Amino acid sequence: MILSRRQLLKTSLGVSLAASVPMSLLNVWAAEAQTTTLPLAIHSQDGPHRLDVEVAETASQRQRGLMEREHLPEARGMLFRFESEQPAGNAFWMYRTLIPLDIAYIDGEGRIVAINTMQPCTSDTPRECPSYPAGASYHAALEVNAGYFAERGIQVGDCVSVPALAGFCRPDA
């Protein structure tokens, strides 16, 4: 294949630009894009319900959440962890989120303090999307497919544990 001068120039500029991006910056971008997946259990009256959850711990991971996903497998979810307790008025929204979701807000002891069902927002304007406040202080939030909690009898007061994080609550004996 013979390249024209223009194609050769474009190709060499692209290679030069890619080479000039510091490797540390590329690593930061890659790390931000990846989330850790961990097993999680919700202990309710109907027994433990196990999920594999992506963990959103950084501000950018939490901001992106499950945006633009067209499907979430049944036994999957996303756990949003915060460094400090979040006020009851802090809310989640569904801007650019394509699938209906349930959200459980979890306190520092690992107990579910509120559950909401959130519908996708079809607006291109973020301010036109409804928000879903917890109504209680929380340390984490768990998003799953809409209907997941109701179908399994999971409710406020149930216990959420994440063994790999040695955290949240221990189910009642």
Rank of each mutant, 00 (worst) to 15 (best):
R64T: 15
E32M: 08
V113C: 11
E68I: 04
P39W: 09
L142F: 10
R6I: 12
A30V: 08
Q63T: 03
L17R: 09
A91E: 08
T58G: 05
C159Q: 13
S44M: 14
P130S: 12
L26C: 05
Q119R: 11
A136M: 09
T122P: 01
S12G: 05
A18R: 06
T36G: 09
S12W: 06
V28M: 06
L142S: 11
I115D: 09
V156Q: 15
L13R: 03
I42C: 07
E54Q: 07
A141T: 10
Q45R: 14
L9C: 13
P22Y: 01
L72E: 01
S24W: 15
R127Y: 08
F149N: 08
E128K: 13
V15W: 04
R5Q: 04
Y148V: 05
F80Y: 12
R111S: 11
R5G: 13
I42N: 00
L3W: 05
P73T: 03
E32P: 02
S161K: 01
D172M: 03
F92V: 03
R152S: 07
S123L: 12
S12C: 13
L40A: 07
T36I: 08
G65F: 00
N27Y: 03
G110K: 01
P73D: 05
K10V: 06
A31D: 15
P48E: 14
P126E: 15
M118W: 10
G167V: 09
L26A: 07
I42K: 00
A134M: 04
R69C: 05
L51N: 07
R111Y: 02
P171A: 12
S137D: 15
D102E: 02
A173P: 15
L79C: 07
A173N: 15
D172Y: 08
G47R: 10
L8I: 12
A75M: 11
R64N: 14
V15H: 02
D107I: 02
G153F: 06
Y138D: 07
D52A: 09
K10H: 06
E54I: 00
R111I: 02
S137C: 12
E85Y: 10
A136W: 07
S20F: 04
C159S: 06
